[in-house]
Amino acid sequence: MHALQQSLALGPVGISIGQLLIVLAFFMALLAGALLGRRYRTPVADTLFTLLLLGLAGARTLFVIRYWGSYDGILSILDIRDGGFDPLGGLVVGLAYALWLMWRHPAQRVALAGALTTGAITWGLLAGPLLLMESTARPLPDTALVALDGSPADLPSLAAAEGQPLVVNLWATWCPPCIREMPVFEQMQQEADDITFVFVNQGEDARHVERFLAEHTLELDNILLDARNSLGEVTGSMAMPTTLFYDADGQLRSTHFGELSRATLLSGIERLR
Rank of each mutant, 00 (worst) to 15 (best):
L224A: 08
A3Y: 10
L148A: 05
L266D: 15
R38A: 14
T255I: 15
L51Y: 00
P43S: 05
P156V: 02
S7V: 07
G258L: 01
L220E: 07
L224I: 08
L260A: 13
S16I: 03
L170S: 00
I179D: 06
T117A: 14
R138I: 10
L252S: 13
G18M: 09
D221N: 13
P139Y: 01
F85V: 03
T42C: 15
F185G: 11
L31Q: 15
P43K: 07
T61N: 04
P87N: 13
L131H: 14
D142G: 15
L266Y: 13
A45H: 08
V209G: 10
G236I: 05
W174P: 13
F85N: 01
L101G: 03
Q189K: 07
D247Q: 08
S230P: 12
E204T: 03
E259T: 04
A25L: 10
H105W: 06
D79A: 07
G268M: 09
A192C: 07
S76V: 00
V13G: 10
Y40F: 14
R60E: 02
I74F: 11
L53C: 10
I17L: 13
A111D: 05
L36Y: 04
D247M: 12
R253C: 08
V92D: 08
L30E: 12
R262K: 15
A147N: 14
P12Y: 05
I179G: 03
F257D: 06
I77N: 04
V167Y: 00
G114H: 06
R39I: 07
S70E: 13
Y71I: 09
L88P: 04
A32R: 01
A96Y: 02
G90I: 00
I80P: 01
L21I: 09
G119C: 04
R104L: 08
S254N: 13
L140S: 05
A161I: 02
D149S: 07
A159C: 04
I121E: 04
H208F: 12
M1E: 12
G14C: 10
A120F: 05
L95W: 09
L20A: 07
S7D: 15
G73M: 04
G128T: 08
R207Q: 11
R66K: 11
L48W: 00
S254I: 08
M28G: 08
F199E: 08
G18H: 13
L35H: 07
L158K: 06
F185A: 05
A161P: 02
G119I: 00
W174C: 09
I65G: 01
L48M: 03
G73A: 04
A147L: 05
G114M: 03
L24I: 00
Q189W: 03
Y97N: 01
R39W: 13
L132D: 15
T143P: 12
F27S: 06
L140D: 06
Q190V: 08
